[in-house]
Simulated scan of single mutants.
Amino acid sequence: MTATRRFRRCLVPAALLFGLSACALGPLATPHTPAEQVSIGEAQSALDGMRGLSAKFVQVGPGAQGASGLAWFETGHLRLDYAAPMRRIVVATHGRLIVHDEATDATTRISLAANPLGLLLSGPVRLSGEIDVTDIQRSPTSLQLSLTRASNPAQGLLTLFFDVGSQGSLLLSGIEAVDAERHRTRFHLYDQKVGQALDEGLFTPPGS
């Protein structure tokens, strides 16, 4: 049976979450149960140990429906290399998201300060303090945590998906970001490898 928990900072429908920044002034979230604290702790341990991750990905979302490629992740850094025909390179580092279109040689730079992906890429992830865990769903084979920025949940929602291994270990298998305009982008990860020595040059922005 899947355990589900949802709590919000104000009593409004979920669809209105990103349009009402005043929600942050509402009632405090219900404290986590002991079982939920265990799930959060396990996810925290998995994120702490997720060094040198490489994976293949498929994207579902605006502008790149069904696009695929290779992904690399190191604490505070992410690189996505999209396969043809998209031919796009995305690098997240030092608080910025740099998108380089190889077909047009155009480069776009976006701040992660107000982007839900910034919750994962601002440095070592801490599932407390500046980050609120607003939703937990667990089954025998999966764990799902939704996160918002505690100071401004209206900026967006980030959901992390983990596969649960036979020994209870967690492996990141998906990331979904919903921004303030409710644009939803999801990355499905597979063929993950963890603990690799990644070349620092992977996270050098294109054109630098």
Score class of each variant (00 low, 15 high):
residue 27 P to W: 00
residue 166 S to P: 14
residue 174 G to W: 04
residue 93 T to W: 03
residue 100 H to A: 08
residue 80 L to Q: 10
residue 175 I to Y: 02
residue 68 S to Y: 15
residue 35 A to L: 08
residue 160 L to D: 00
residue 173 S to D: 05
residue 108 T to Q: 12
residue 64 A to K: 08
residue 99 V to C: 14
residue 174 G to M: 05
residue 166 S to A: 14
residue 14 A to W: 12
residue 145 L to F: 08
residue 63 G to Y: 12
residue 204 T to I: 06
residue 28 L to W: 09
residue 44 Q to G: 10
residue 79 R to A: 06
residue 51 R to C: 09
residue 96 R to S: 11
residue 72 W to E: 14
residue 79 R to L: 04
residue 170 L to C: 01
residue 207 G to H: 06
residue 182 R to H: 13
residue 55 A to C: 06
residue 60 V to S: 15
residue 124 P to V: 07
residue 27 P to K: 06
residue 59 Q to F: 11
residue 186 R to G: 01
residue 14 A to I: 07
residue 52 G to N: 11
residue 179 D to W: 10
residue 42 E to L: 15
residue 189 L to F: 10
residue 69 G to S: 07
residue 66 G to Q: 11
residue 154 A to M: 01
residue 66 G to A: 08
residue 56 K to T: 15
residue 90 V to L: 10
residue 58 V to E: 09
residue 83 A to I: 09
residue 97 L to A: 08
residue 73 F to M: 15
residue 16 L to R: 11
residue 130 E to I: 05
residue 198 L to N: 05
residue 127 L to G: 00
residue 117 L to A: 03
residue 73 F to G: 11
residue 195 G to Q: 07
residue 30 T to F: 07
residue 15 A to F: 13
residue 35 A to P: 00
residue 145 L to A: 01
residue 179 D to T: 03
residue 16 L to S: 05
residue 161 F to M: 11
residue 120 L to W: 00
residue 77 H to V: 06
residue 180 A to V: 04
residue 11 L to P: 13
residue 38 V to F: 00
residue 37 Q to G: 08
residue 170 L to M: 03
residue 204 T to V: 06
residue 142 S to A: 14
residue 166 S to F: 14
residue 196 Q to P: 05
residue 165 G to C: 02
residue 151 S to R: 12
residue 35 A to E: 11
residue 116 P to F: 03
residue 34 P to L: 03
residue 41 G to C: 10
residue 120 L to C: 02
residue 88 R to Y: 15
residue 39 S to K: 10
residue 94 H to V: 08
residue 79 R to K: 10
residue 144 Q to P: 03
residue 81 D to V: 14
residue 201 G to W: 12
residue 197 A to V: 14
residue 95 G to V: 05
residue 53 L to Y: 09
residue 53 L to M: 13
residue 38 V to L: 09
residue 198 L to P: 13
residue 59 Q to W: 11
residue 28 L to G: 13
residue 15 A to D: 07
residue 19 G to M: 09
